[in-house]
Structures are given as structure tokens and as C-alpha cells.
Design a protein around this nucleic acid. Structure first.
Lengths: 246, 246
DNA sequence: CGTTTCGTTGAAGAGTGTCAAGGCCAGTGG
DNA sequence: CCACTGGCCTTGACACTCTTCAACGAAACG
């Protein structure tokens, strides 16, 4: 079992938000230089998390949020009787750890699916600075709200869509997020296993595998292990909307 | 189709948080009198929503949050192809509308399941006062985070539990929330239809009905239409955890 | 009191899960 | 460099849960 990465890491650096090319994703777009100076005080350090290690685990004390600089994470919750559910996959520029604010303890695990680097944002400092920089406060609230909206979408998916519809929606969502980060929207590498996709989508890994095979057979995608290419996005969209010829 | 309740309502009153007996649920517990005075400025008015009417609908402009004073609401999201999913049921003391912050538009419908009264909290005012009253800001962030955690729980339920496990978890959750509000934890009225329960749990109404009948047959509950009594909460807990004798 | 909405139950069928076997691939150690 | 290993993925056959369709009964509403 991978352990939580050590909190004191040789690779801790002073961060520099003003020069970070992710700030459009992770921070307000328009900041005056004095506001930016305040925001720079936010990020204490960076931290590296190796593939398979946890950024934090359920039950850990919460004291920081993390802005994903590089890499790929999954979040999982585990029920008292041991069921595990992937609640999300996180890409560059996204903020993780929001679940910890409510009780000062993390409620889920965040595990790196590839070597990952995050900016550590001490939460008390964020609250303090947010109360002085309104645009930051507003942005932070929007980030939390967006997470709530995202989860509504997942509930819709889990509650009312069939296996192939879920998978199509998932692939299109990944595609769109890769595109927003400047990568190809048609060709990318799945960082997660079939089992992890299945857990996220409320399906078994065999069902995921079969659905991928069927999409490939129908000419919607090409898939080779983790390598994926979307050849017919409109076809996927049709499937997602339940308009599929079956 | 029920329409959005008119924004200008005869029953709008000046609110008074300091004397509201819900403030332990909806607002920070410990406020100095000057802080309380600031918070009182938060709530502009109250608003009544009749059974079947909407407090807001997806696409409506967002400008306020709502603290539920009295009544019962459901939130629903609808996909582009018309699928509807209940994302939550809201009881007295809970805050709704958080989904609207992200884009200044509501992303879901909030519909009253019984005659309901809410305190209207203009969001700009909340942001302003929160930046001056740290305990309020902290509390607000916790409320949003708690919503995220709650949704993780729903994802776990939808993604990895069977029909009867879902329903048992749902009944126990309701029970606990009624108890927290001073009502009986063993006997209560379901404000929603079987179809709405089913939508929330990712099941068809017939499945909900059958599961309820089976629980009743097995002596876990007594059920008469919307009236429900939990006679064996431990039995329900066992079912929820998948330890059910089948 | 009629009409409509809501709830219950049965039978049949579809969609996923379960179980099992085998293939592919990357990493490891001889 | 190659064989070995273990993790990951694919595919088939079968079982089972849940949905679908349908009919009926009960409660709520005007």
C-alpha cells in the first residue's frame, strides 16, 4: 500500500505565481500587481508526489489546499464497509483538498496516478488574504461552487445513464479538459486503469473494457491499452445523449 | 408545470437572525453582538414558495442564497437530452443555491415539496460581510465544503451500492436529519414521491416500492404511503453495509 | 364524487455483474 | 539478452439485479 508522501520534501521550492503559466486556470485572471503580490504570499511551497503515493488520505488533518502544477491525481472515498469509489480525476491547474475544509480533516484520499507536483496553499493564509483581496475571495467561492456543479453532473451520470453513455460522457469530458490545457482533444493517454474508470463511473472494469471495445469496433475511437484516439466525437456525443443505434 | 414563484411576494418580512431558532444550523454558533448585528444585515427578506413551485430554476440569474426556514425542497438537474436527476432534498436550516455562484446562473432547479419559507441572502452582501467577519467567512466555507463531502457520499452510494443498500442508507440519513431538528428519528413523513426517491437513488420507482415492501415484510420498517416508521434501525444499518441476509 | 396522481405487485426481458481463462506489456533479475 | 513475474486488459458464458410493461388499487384534489 503506498504511503502518504513525507510532508517535508527535498524538492520544496519557493513558488512564484506571477510567472506560473497555470495561473489562468488556478487563479483569478485579472490582478493588479499589488494584488498579485498578496497572492504570492499564498503559496508556501511546492511538493512532489510520486506515482502511487498519496497527497493526503482520509482522516489526515487538513491544513492546506493544493494546486496541481504537474501530473494527475485521483480522489477516492471509502465507506465504512470498505467500498471504494473514485470521486474524481484531477488535472493540471485544478485545486484539490476542498473536502477538508468542513471538518478540518480530509474525507477522501488523493493519490497520484503519475509523478505529480503541487503548490501548497495553507488554508488559514488563504482565508486571510481572501478577506483582503475581494477578487480572490470571489474566485475561490466560484471554484468551490464549480466543484459542487461538477458533482451534480456526476450524480446525473451515475443516476440516470447506461454504461456506454457514461463512458462516452467520460471520454468527452477528458477530451475537453485536455484541450483546455493545450493538448490534443482527439489523442491522449488514459492515466488511470480500467478499474479506476469503472469505479468512477459506477461500473465494473469488464464493462468498461467491453464498452471501449464496442466503441472501437463501431469506429468511434481507436484504443490501444492506455493510448486513446477519438475518431468520431459526434458519434460519442450521440451515444452520451442516448441517441445511439444499438 | 409549476412556475417560479414570483420574486416580489406579499409575505416578505424583515428577517431577524438573532431571534431565529435555526441559527445553530444555518449560521455560526458563537457571534458577538456586534458580529450578529452585521449578520442581521445579511438577510434582506423572506420569501414563501408554495408546494410545487420553484425557488429558482436552472438558467435563472443567481444573486442570492437561501436559508430554509420552514418546509422541504428538492434540487434537480436536467441533462440536455431531458433526463432529470434529483441531486438532493433540503430540510429546515439548510442553505441552498450554492450551485449558482460559479457562473452567476443557477445550474439546477429547486422546487418546494411542501409550502416553504426561506430567508433571502443576497450573495454580494454575504461576500462583503464575510470579508469583515472572519467567523462568518470560515463558516460559509465549511458549509460549501460540507456540501462537497455530502455529494461524495451520494457518489459512493450511486456508484457502488445495490438498490436495498441505497434505500436503507437514504432512510437512515433522513432519520438522522429529522432527529437533528428535534423530530422523531423513528417516525416521519416522506415529503417526496417514490419516483423522486428513485431519481435521487438512481432507481426506478417500482424498485423503491418493492424495496420498501421488502423492508416492511422483514420487520425493519412500517410503511403506509408517505408515513414511515423505522422499527429496526440496526437492521437497516446492516443492509446498508451489505451484510444483509438475502 | 369523479378525476388524477401516486403506489403496489407480477411477469418477462435487458443490461451489468460475476467468474474464469488467456493475452499483452513493462519491469526485474539472472 | 531473455525468461520470468505480476499487473492490466480482453473476451466469453452465465447468473442476477433491476427495469420495463401492465394492471389494479388507494389516496389526494378540485
Amino acid at each position: 500500500m503506498p504511503e502518504t508522501a513525507s510532508p517535508l520534501n527535498a524538492s520544496q521550492l519557493r513558488a512564484a505565481c506571477s510567472t506560473c503559466n497555470l495561473r489562468e486556470l488556478c487563479l483569478p485572471l485579472q490582478l493588479s500587481s499589488s494584488e498579485m503580490a498578496a497572492v504570492e504570499k499564498l503559496v508556501a511551497t511546492r511538493r512532489k508526489v510520486h506515482r502511487g503515493e498519496a497527497l493526503y488520505r482520509a482522516g489526515d488533518d487538513f491544513d492546506s489546499l493544493y494546486a496541481l502544477r504537474l501530473g494527475f491525481l485521483k480522489s477516492t472515498v471509502t465507506s465504512t464497509d470498505g467500498r471504494e469509489q473514485v470521486t474524481g480525476f484531477h488535472m493540471t491547474g485544478e485545486l484539490v483538498g476542498l473536502d477538508g475544509i468542513s471538518t478540518q480533516k480530509h474525507h477522501c484520499d488523493a493519490v497520484a496516478l503519475e509523478d505529480t507536483e503541487v503548490c501548497v496553499i495553507p488554508y488559514e493564509r488563504l482565508e486571510h488574504i481572501a478577506s483582503e483581496v475581494p477578487v480572490l475571495q470571489t474566485h475561490f467561492h466560484k471554484v468551490m461552487s464549480r466543484e459542487i456543479v461538477r458533482e451534480h453532473g456526476v450524480m446525473l451520470l451515475l443516476g440516470s445513464m447506461h454504461a456506454e453513455e457514461r463512458l462516452a460522457a467520460f471520454l468527452l469530458n477528458l477530451s475537453q479538459r485536455f484541450e483546455a490545457r493545450g493538448y490534443s482533444r482527439t489523442e491522449f493517454v488514459l492515466r488511470m486503469t480500467r478499474a479506476e474508470i469503472g469505479s468512477f463511473l459506477g461500473l465494473k472494469l469488464e464493462t468498461v473494457s467491453r464498452a471501449l471495445s464496442r466503441f472501437a469496433h463501431d469506429g468511434l475511437i481507436e484504443v490501444n491499452q492506455k493510448r486513446l484516439r477519438i475518431t468520431d466525437p459526434d458519434g460519442l456525443r450521440a451515444i452520451m445523449s442516448g441517441q445511439a443505434a444499438r
